[in-house]
Amino acid sequence: MSEGFEPRIVGFFCKWCTYAGADLAGTSRLQYPPNVLPIRVMCSSRVDPVFLLTAYLRGADAVLIGGCHPGDCHYIEGNYYTRRRVALLKNIFETLKLDTERLRLSWISASEGPRFAKVITEYTENTKKIGPNPAKNKIFI
């Protein structure tokens, strides 16, 4: 089924770190799969779990939040709240037996271009492995 399947991954990236990390990966001419649709946010804590859920339920094959490493948030503690919210959403997914594998949180700093490329590569590969999001063509979702 996943032969030739190119996943669509929605990424919510913090402007101060992961988004800059993506920039660095680009300017350093690192290769990574073009499957991520990046959305820039001012801080990972700007991302309400409902954003992730919306992307997932509307058929994104995977969702990624990128934030500053713990302790490095531009707003001091935003990403600690993010961590708890994402953990909570994953817990809800677990209870409802939805795909926790389609939700990811990664800490990627502005200087970690290679790490950015690696995360995207791995996440894309993994999403290819698990196949398309079944929500994609379900009417009643």
Binding site: E77, Y80, R85, A87, L105, R115, V119
Partner: peptide, 22 residues
């Protein structure tokens, strides 16, 4: 729980849930 957080001592469940692939 969503109004507070732990830095180093974060709850196991939270840390495990948010472990990165890398």
């Amino acid at each position: 729980p969503l109004r507070v957080f732990e830095d180093e001592q974060e709850l196991d469940q939270v840390v495990t849930m948010c472990k990165d692939i890398l």
